[in-house]
């Protein structure tokens, strides 16, 4: 029983990273209608930036906001310079662009920092929290709190500020928003900035656990795609909840389902996602399309 609970707790910690990435995917998806395969690589780049800053003597809690700001700038830049040129070319081209970004950013990081894994300092120290036979490292607890805070901040941004209102307007109905005088391009750019910033948080809290290497986020991204679909990419809450569900399902299924095993662990989250989506095509929290043929 203790192991089962511990497995759930482990799944929660892991799943929050998927949820954060899925949240970033969701923000871009709602804005640009693009599945951003390079989200993981963008986040990893952010973690490298943090590492460079801390190694240059900047304190972690100064480096973090700096990184987030730089990441947001980088995300906006990508939207302005690349994505915008392709918006008329269709979602397939946008998807290919994200593939190109994935390959390019990965190569760039490998060239600059090599593919050697690097230790990433845990900003929360190395303690252990124990209760009722369960345990959580201070790093895991700190990540959890950070991620919840970021999610809350994102929710506030979207639901309680005028920036968020405009973002949502552009996402939901680009044509009407433009007619109403909202500068669509500007808000799409802001969306990319927000997504890149959210991704930066995900990478910075994941890096101490995963050790930093250019391909660090490739596997989490795959599960984040499942998480987003499970929860509904059109819903930010859904993306986060989906991530947590995926993290827990992944652990429990590969641990307890006979014959599945750790090597095929990835089957479980995808099977769960497929099942849910068959019943609710827009995902758990997504808005169901009204047009049916």
């Amino acid at each position: 029983m203790t192991e089962l609970l511990q497995q759930v707790l482990d799944g929660l910690s892991t799943g929050l990273v998927y949820g954060m990435l899925a949240l970033a995917l969701s923000v871009i998806f709602q804005g640009t209608g693009m599945l951003n395969f390079s989200q993981g690589e963008m986040a990893t780049l952010s973690a490298y930036v943090t590492l460079v800053l801390t190694q240059a003597g900047v304190g972690f809690w100064v480096a973090l906001p700096l990184t987030v700001a730089l990441s947001a700038g980088g995300g906006a830049l990508i939207e302005r310079v690349l994505v915008r040129r392709l918006e008329g070319a269709g979602e397939l081209s946008l998807l290919t662009l994200s593939v190109a970004l994935l390959l390019g950013l990965n190569a760039l990081m490998s060239i600059i920092w090599t593919t050697d894994p690097r230790t990433f300092p845990s900003p929360f120290g190395k303690g252990l929290i124990e209760f009722a036979g369960l345990h959580m490292t201070v790093q895991q607890a700190g990540s959890l709190i950070t991620l919840l805070a970021v999610m809350a901040a994102t929710a506030l941004l979207f639901n309680r500020t005028s920036v968020g209102l405009r973002l949502r307007a552009v996402a939901q109905n680009p044509a009407s928003a433009t007619l109403l005088g909202q500068h669509q391009g500007l808000w799409l750019m802001v969306g990319w900035a927000v997504a890149a910033a959210v991704g930066a948080f995900a990478a910075v809290v994941a890096a101490p656990v995963l050790t930093l290497s250019p391909g660090m986020m490739a596997f989490p991204l795959l599960l984040a795609l499942a998480a987003g679909t499970l929860g509904g990419l059109s819903s930010r809450v859904g993306a986060v909840v989906g991530g947590v569900l995926i993290g827990i399902a992944d652990n429990l299924a590969s641990r307890y389902v006979p014959g599945l095993g750790r090597d095929l662990a990835i089957v479980a989250p995808f099977a769960l996602t497929a099942l849910v989506v068959m019943l609710r095509p827009a995902g758990l929290f997504g808005k169901t399309r009204t047009v049916r043929v």
Binding site: T2, Q6, S13, P117, L210, G215, D250, S254, R255
Partner: peptide, 30 residues
């Protein structure tokens, strides 16, 4: 575990719960 999966917390929990006191690891970086 397939290569690419970086988070092994769940696997460690499983080993620990099974009372493993000798662990043979052939896992590579990262």
């Amino acid at each position: 575990v397939p290569p690419g999966q970086g988070d092994l917390t769940s696997q460690v929990t499983e080993l620990k719960a099974a009372g493993v006191n000798v662990l043979v690891v052939t896992h590579g970086p990262p």
